[in-house]
Design a protein around this nucleic acid. Structure first.
Length: 628
RNA sequence: GGGCCUAUAGCUCAGCAUGGAUAGAGUGUUGGACUUCUAAUCCAAUGGUCAAGGGAUCGAAGCCCUUUGGGCCCA
């Protein structure tokens, strides 16, 4: 029950008091207090002020007095603050025991929001014609973190990666391979996805300006891609799968794993579109336009002031949104599944099965990767399109929020970083562009981080084996990259700067990981196995109580993060935990105190902290090394 | 022309959903703490007309309206 126990106790008692006063339907808050104002605060007196025609302070006084007469097990006393807040002080002897002994349980921090229902999280979904750049990483890390949080909130999460293997960008590199003579093998030592993105894609698109005939060739390629039997489609399939393999390697390295890969080409060939097209017509969700500029097209009427959206052009071809509609409906389980499934050719490092859709009929295996709800992680430039899909899905499925577009702002390059890539932006930040070769590859950032972390680790631990240093550097680099991608709000633009991103101090992942190393060291040196069979009332220093309080907030933070699909909440929580531990570390010694009971109690706290932080970090996909 | 996002300390950001106490971190700058469980740490100082204006409220960084700057999407 954790810290929530005391919140519940207070809320119940306050409700009881209000009931005695014949006051109902007041939605007051009961929250962890700001530092310096006790342990728990309630705004109840403010809300009653008008109704009772008294000032908040007098009401707080009255409530506080009545509160003394309630049965309290975890609250020591209540206090009316002159401001009008009602503050509560916990009986930490009891609350500490409750929190710390629970923290040892496997289910610590679990909340049940999902009731074990299935939810789909789709993320990554990068065109398979290039390597992942730092902007894609934001999508991937958000998606992966949200998935982990939803699992903790008792959802059955199906993680999908949509592979757009038949779009314009793929056509571009096929033009490069087939018509501009790019070799099929990358230069020695270069990953295939990097080669396709850095060389084939950029250099091919560069040539479009000079040679207009290439556009025509590309359009032909595009058409051939839609027909699965063409030689071009087979070639493209081979190339895109090699690129995809490279991209997946990057993801796996960051501890990001999937359940199923969905290929756009198969969605097109599956016939899902015509099925849903008929349904859209039947439900009058789309209309045939008889006049105006969209005459002859099937359109979705724009809501409010928005333009109508063309779904099928007058020449009968579907627009790109037409691919998204059946896919969204498929994810929600609204359509008969046209796919069979097969295992992906490589195993994921975490040994979770990775499936992929297939239209092959031999040896059919069926799987279910759909969900009651769907979360689609796509950057907010797609908000308009996603809004249409959301609204359509709302009409297909009468559940509120069944389809959620989780949008986020883009990652731009700082002017300095843009300059190192050869673009002078006159001090402004720059949008990344795969086409123009203006991006920073995720693999390169990881490598740079790892080199720097290795140096730092060597400096501190000259005795360490290279393999151990390698492992620490890997953990710290992955953590840094992931943490930087989610520590701020989704609707804030991240300006990526190659130099600044390498910082390992302050509000960074290493800061948090470092506290774990400190805790490990204490536990290791103690030569004892910490237990919960200790005297919790010995833990009464402010820094100890603060740390315990933070540990007790875990499930509340998970609830908040899951309800709001907000990875940032957990990032901040981890940081708060680390700050609380560092304060404890400075203020309270653990070992060689000459007081075995106190030592045991503190060891229990250290262990509890470590377990909790590790669990919270796990939600961020971060591992904390025991030494660093 | 229409729509979405955004503006809080020199810089990067929390806080805003659900209005109430003293607006918090990191970074920067200055100074201090390693014979003591790891200094990737800690402590102190410094730094704010919460973009501007208006409105409703006993009370606004937060809610409503208008304007401006920045970013994006559509036309």
């Amino acid at each position: 029950m954790t810290f929530k126990s005391i919140l519940d106790e207070i809320e119940n008692n306050l409700n009881k008091i209000l009931g005695e006063l014949s006051i109902h339907d007041v939605k007051f808050s009961v929250e962890p207090a700001k530092s310096g104002f006790g342990d728990v605060s309630s705004n109840v007196s403010f809300l009653l002020a008008k109704q009772l025609k008294k000032n908040p302070k007098d009401i707080a006084d009255m409530l506080s007095e009545r509160f003394q007469n309630c049965t309290n097990t975890l609250v020591m006393r209540s206090e009316a603050h002159p401001s009008g807040y009602l503050n509560f002080y916990a009986d930490w002897g009891k609350l500490s025991q409750l929190i710390l002994s629970e923290s040892y349980l496997d289910e610590f921090g679990d909340v049940d929001i999902g009731k074990n229902t299935a939810i789909v999280v789709e993320h990554t979904s990068v065109n398979p014609n290039k390597a992942l750049h730092i902007g894609h990483i934001r999508n991937i890390v958000i998606g992966d973190t949200v998935s982990r949080i939803l699992k903790k909130a008792n959802y059955k999460v199906n993680i999908l990666n949509y592979v757009d293997d038949s779009g314009l960008q793929v056509a571009d590199i096929i033009v490069g391979f087939k018509h501009l003579g790019f070799a099929e093998e990358p230069p020695h030592g270069k990953k295939f996805d990097h080669y396709c993105g850095d060389d084939v894609y950029v250099k091919t698109t560069e040539k479009y300006g000079a040679d207009p005939s290439l556009e025509r060739i590309r359009n032909n390629v595009l058409k051939e891609l839609e027909n699965g039997d063409s030689e071009t489609a087979r070639f493209a399939d081979k190339i895109t799968r090699k690129v995809l393999a490279g991209q997946l390697e990057t993801c796996w390295n960051l501890d990001v794993f999937y359940d199923c890969l969905n290929f756009e080409s198969q969605i097109i060939r599956s016939g899902l579109w015509s099925e849903i097209f008929e349904e859209l017509k039947a439900m009058s969700l789309i209309e045939f336009e008889k006049e105006g500029k969209n005459a002859g097209c099937w359109v979705i009427r724009g809501e409010d002031n928005e333009e109508d959206k063309v779904i099928v052009r007058s020449n009968g071809t579907a627009t790109y949104i037409a691919k998204d509609i059946p896919y969204a409906a498929w994810k929600l389980g609204l359509l008969d599944d046209p796919f069979n499934y097969e295992k992906y050719e490589k195993k994921q490092p975490d040994s979770r099965d990775l499936w992929q859709t297939t239209l092959k009929k031999n040896n059919p295996i069926s799987q279910n990767f759909t969900g009651e709800k769907v979360v689609t992680v796509i950057d907010s430039r797609q908000a308009r399109l996603q809004k249409i899909i959301t609204s359509l899905m709302g009409k297909f499925k009468s559940m509120p929020d069944a389809y959620v577009h989780l949008g986020y702002e883009s990652v731009t390059l700082s002017s300095e970083t843009a300059k190192t890539l050869g673009l002078d932006t006159e001090g402004k930040q720059a949008q990344m562009s795969g086409r123009r070769g203006l991006y920073v590859n995720a693999d390169s950032v990881y490598e740079l981080l790892k080199e720097k972390t290795k140096e730092e680790t060597k400096k501190r631990h000259s005795e360490m084996s290279p393999s151990e240093i390698e492992k620490i550097a890997h953990n710290v680099s992955v953590a840094t990259l992931r943490y930087e991608m989610i520590k701020q709000d989704l609707d804030k633009i991240i300006t990526f700067d190659l130099t600044k991103s390498l910082s390992l101090e302050g509000d960074t992942a290493p800061y948090i990981q470092y506290t774990c190393a400190r805790a490990s060291r204490i536990l290791e040196k103690s030569d004892r196995i910490p237990t919960i069979d200790v005297d919790f009332s010995l833990l009464k220093e402010k820094s100890e109580i603060d740390l315990i309080k933070n540990i007790g907030l875990f499930n509340l933070q998970v609830r908040d993060a899951a309800n709001n699909l907000s990875p940032k909440v957990i990032a901040r929580y981890c940081h708060d935990l680390a700050v609380a531990f560092n304060s404890f570390y400075e203020n309270a010694k653990v070992l060689e105190l000459g007081d075995v009971n106190l030592e045991n109690s503190r060891l229990c706290l250290v262990n509890s902290f470590k377990i909790t932080l590790e669990r919270a970090l796990d939600l961020l996909g971060i591992t904390a090394p025991d030494r660093m």
